[in-house]
Simulated assay, not measured.
Amino acid sequence: MKPKHMKKLIYHVLVGGFAILLLYPVFWLLMSSFKVSEQIFITADVLIPDPFVFGNYAQGWQGFGDYSFGVFIKNTAVFVLFVLIGHLISCSLIAFGFARLKFAGRNFWFAIMIMTLMLPYEVVMIPQYIIFAELGWLNSLKPLVVPAYFGHPFFIFLLVQFIRTIPRELDEAAIIDGCNTFSVYYRIILPLITPALATTAIFTFYWTWDNLLGPVLFLNSPSKYTVSMALNMFLSNETVSNWGAMFAMSIVSLVPVFIIFFIFQRYVVEGISTSGLKG
């Protein structure tokens, strides 16, 4: 075998082995979702269920009380959709302002915005709860959705870096043709930052779909629970936890995540790599 082919073989073997190592927990979760709950951890080292229990999916989909698991998926989809729209609108507008507009203290405010990335959510959790309680927003999606319309520092930084790679000559040509500032943003910048917007949308979807702390903090009606809260309800400190149903619904909740990833994975790579070309 030629050295060139040998290198390719070694590369593919190493990458394939690493991929199997990373996917093993997901495969274990899938196989465990077909086991009897009492045997999941007793036979944790055995991947193939004996026997296959398909009832875990039916039992898990029944949900709790009058609410099936489909209700929780619908609540999460609505939650994700509103946050997604908020991030795309607010982050792109703020990023355009930092990247293209000149105003007093621009660098200072940009630095302050970047510093908020180092601020743990636990620091602002209690002040936010007090504010939203005073506004009467508890037990609704407002505390979870409204902040998304004021930007997210990570996505703002990502979009700023992307916009800076776009030549300013395009803005000047658009202004000569009669465009105002908003028209430059809407007609010139937005179409050109599609990869970065797609990256923002994908990461927003991932982070919002599996968000547990926010919904637990602000929601207390089962009819408004999200998927992450519903999965947590399968665990019990007083009775036996229904691991089989929880693992089954965990697989169901992963389906949208895998679909989004395989469809839009090229946008993630393109958006992140291109955003780092220019500081």
Rank of each mutant, 00 (worst) to 15 (best):
M6F: 10
K8Y: 12
I10M: 14
I10V: 15
I10Q: 03
I10G: 06
Y11A: 08
F18T: 11
I20K: 00
P25E: 03
P25D: 09
L30M: 14
S33Q: 07
K35V: 08
E38Q: 14
Q39L: 13
I42G: 15
D50F: 08
G55S: 10
N56E: 06
Y57C: 08
G60P: 03
G60L: 10
G63A: 01
G65D: 11
V71H: 10
F72W: 11
I73A: 06
N75R: 04
T76Q: 15
V80L: 10
F82Q: 05
H87L: 09
I89C: 12
C91N: 14
S92R: 04
I94V: 14
A95E: 07
G97S: 13
R100G: 11
R100Q: 09
L101T: 12
W109G: 13
W109E: 15
A111I: 07
P120K: 02
V123T: 15
V123K: 05
I126N: 13
Y129R: 10
I130R: 02
F132M: 10
G136T: 01
G136W: 02
N139R: 09
P143F: 15
P143D: 12
V145H: 07
P153Y: 04
F154C: 12
F157I: 11
F157G: 10
F162I: 06
P167L: 15
D171A: 04
E172I: 01
A173C: 06
I176E: 08
F182S: 09
S183I: 06
V184M: 04
L190F: 08
P191D: 09
P195G: 07
A198S: 14
A201P: 07
A201N: 09
F203R: 01
T204K: 03
W207T: 09
T208S: 15
G214H: 02
V216Y: 06
L217D: 03
K224M: 13
T226W: 01
T226S: 11
S228C: 04
N232D: 12
N232G: 13
S236L: 14
N237R: 14
T239A: 15
M249P: 12
I251G: 00
I251P: 00
I251K: 00
L254P: 13
F262L: 13
F262K: 12
F264T: 03
Q265I: 04
R266M: 01
R266K: 15
I272F: 07
S275F: 00
